[in-house]
């Protein structure tokens, strides 16, 4: 059994089927990119993995580290090693970012240094996401994830709404989290990253990319090549590149 195995996953939101039979697997230490047009089911997939309410699994299975993920609550999944960086994190009035981070790590020096590396030192005394700009929210998400230190990181558009300067700040943090400076065989942290702009690909070398359309995985391949095709021909034409629409996907390195 692999690190993450998703088999024939069907997910409905509000009674409407959004994910329509996805197969996807990922090994430990690998980074996957997910491309797909708006409404294709990318965020639903990450929300389902994290166990967020409102995502109803109607069919299929998800196993993570050999455990049936669907039977676990949100916090149990988190403690098992799943971490989500939200696309639109909520603001929580009255709860200071520092207080939340203190719940994630006992190491106050680590909290301070990580916050500094993400230019968030002055935000520690502020309420979580209250009055934060889009970019600040994304950096705060990455900061929280850094301290949570999960084995599988789910990034939902980590660079959207972030200015160029801060994209590199975020990307650098993600590189550290994913142990990109270690040889491939020594890495243990994995990630699934949703990106629209592809900017993050300039900084982070991903192992594989999946294209999701209308709730299906159309295919997978080298992230750079797929992104070039999408940029050139759009998602519609990209879909035709994948001859076998519902093939079973595995990570490409085996």
């Amino acid at each position: 059994m692999g690190f993450l195995e998703i088999q024939n996953l069907h997910v409905s939101v509000g009674g409407k089927e959004i994910i329509k039979g996805i197969n996807l697997s990922l090994d430990a230490g690998r980074t996957a990119i997910i491309f797909g047009p708006n409404g294709s089911g990318k965020s639903t997939l990450l929300g389902t993995l994290a166990g967020l309410p409102g995502y109803e699994i109607t069919k299929g299975s998800i196993t993570f580290k050999g455990q049936d993920l669907t039977k676990l609550s949100i916090d149990e999944r988190s403690r098992l090693g799943i971490g989500l960086s939200y696309q639109y994190p909520p603001a929580i009035k009255g709860v200071r970012l520092q207080t939340l981070l203190d719940n994630l790590s006992n190491d106050s020096d680590l909290i301070a240094s990580r916050a500094e590396s993400l230019n968030l030192t002055n935000h520690l005394c502020r309420d979580v996401n209250v009055g934060f700009s889009g970019g600040e929210r994304k950096r705060s998400e990455v900061l929280q994830l850094m301290l949570q230190n999960p084995d599988l990181m789910l990034f939902d558009e980590p660079e959207s709404g972030v200015d160029i300067e801060n994209i590199s700040v975020i990307a650098q943090a993600v590189r550290i989290m994913l142990e990109k400076d270690k040889p491939i065989s020594k890495r243990s942290k994995s990630a699934i990253i949703i990106t629209h702009t592809g900017f993050i690909l300039d900084y982070i070398k991903a192992d594989i990319a999946f294209v999701i359309m209308d709730g299906h995985v159309l295919g997978c391949g080298a992230p750079g090549e797929i992104f070039e095709e999408i940029k050139q021909d759009g998602y519609k034409n990209c879909a035709s590149c994948f001859a076998d629409k519902f093939q079973e996907i595995i990570t490409g390195d085996e």
Binding site: L52, P53, S73, D75, S78, G83, Y86, I92, N103
Partner: peptide, 12 residues
Amino acid sequence: ELSYLMTRGLTE
């Protein structure tokens, strides 16, 4: 807000 904090590992 509740599920957000729970994704960080806090119990309900």
